[in-house]
Amino acid sequence: MEVSRKPPIVHKAVFPARYESLASISRFIRQVAAQADLDSTVIYRVDAAVDEACSNIIEHAYGDHLTGNIECTCQIDDTALTIILRDDGRPFNPNAIPEPDITAPLEERTDHGLGLLFIRKWMDEVHYEFSGQGNTLTLVKYRNPHK
């Protein structure tokens, strides 16, 4: 018996790679996540992971002297919300960064690496690829199959 599947819903938007874009990116992600029928807690977490990923692109892939865009493609299918972030900057692989020690006493806490926790812990899959044209980061959040 053939299983009928709805075609995926795709939304795409391009934002200038500047911190001032983060609020607009958040609005876009929240709209798409709501359309994927994710609950408010999960929407917050997806929003946070994308914010961290985009902040990293702005800070590390482009940095102070490079300018460019962040291309954000969102796909909703039966099983997941998939968010693909593309940039034309330097290679930056968030998966290569070690996690901070979140049990260390105050004086030994470093203030970096925290954003990667949000990406790794709050998304179900994180895939990174550098093609020579730029970075592609794919973030996947599974949809609740019972909804």
């Binding site: 914010d51 961290e52 902040s55 806490r109 925290l114 954003g115």
Partner: peptide, 11 residues
């Protein structure tokens, strides 16, 4: 909403 940038300010 608070991102790691906000958490860095707090710590």
């Amino acid at each position: 909403f608070i991102s790691s940038a906000g958490l860095r300010v707090l710590i």
